[in-house]
Amino acid sequence: MHKTSESILSTGQLVLALIAALIVGVGLTVFVILPTERNIDSEGSDAISVVEIESTKTESVVQTEQEAVAPNFDALYIAIDPETTPAKVDEFGESLPVVVGANLRVHDIAYKSETINIQIDADAQVEYKAIMDTGEALLYSWEADGELYYDFHAHQENGNPQFWTRYSEGEGSADQGSIVAPYQGEHGWYWLNIAGKAVTVKLSVAGYYDRIKEIELKAAAE
C-alpha cells in the first residue's frame, strides 16, 4: 500500500533529516513565531496601548522612587475618553471590551465599613487613622457641626518619624473622597477644633483597611 522512501534514505541521512527538522522547527518557533506573537500582543491594538500607558506610568513611578523624586500621582488611575478611543469589534462584528487594568484593584482582605461619632471640645484636637497596607483603598466622608482645621495625612507605623505624607489640609466642616495607600502605615485625619465651641464629627469610612484607631496626642496645639 505504501510507496515509502525507506530504500532511498540511509540511517545517516535519516538522522540528519531528523536533526535538521528539529533545528528548523524549534528555530522557527523560538526566533520567528514567539517574537511575532509578542509583537502582536504589545503593538497590535488600541486597547493594548492603554495598558502601555499604564505600564509606562508604573515604570516612571518605580524610577522616581529609586531617584527619590516626587512620585507621579497620575499613576493611580487612567482616564479614557470614549469619544476618541476607538471601539473594538471582533470578526463577527460583536463589540469587544477595551481593557483598563490600571483602574482595578483586587483586595485580599475583607471589606469593612464603619461610622464613628467623635466629640471635640473647643480648641481641642484629635487624630483618627486607618491602618492600611500598600495599595489598599479607602472611601471616606466626614461632617462636623462646626469649623475645624484638618490635616489628612499618613505616617509609617513603625518607620522613620521624620517621614510623613499629606493628602490635603484645610479649614471646613466637611470633606469626602477616597485614597489608595502609597505605603503601609497610618492614613487619616488630624482635627483641631477652631469653632470656639464643642463640635461632633461624624466620620464614615469604608473599604479595605485593617482597623481605625485613635492616635493619642501628647500636647495641645500651640
Binding site: T4, I8, L9, S10, L14, A17
Partner: peptide, 8 residues
C-alpha cells in the same frame, strides 16, 4: 513516511 521506523 521517510521510512525512519522501518530503517531503525
Amino acid at each position: 513516511n521517510l521510512g525512519g521506523f522501518e530503517r531503525f
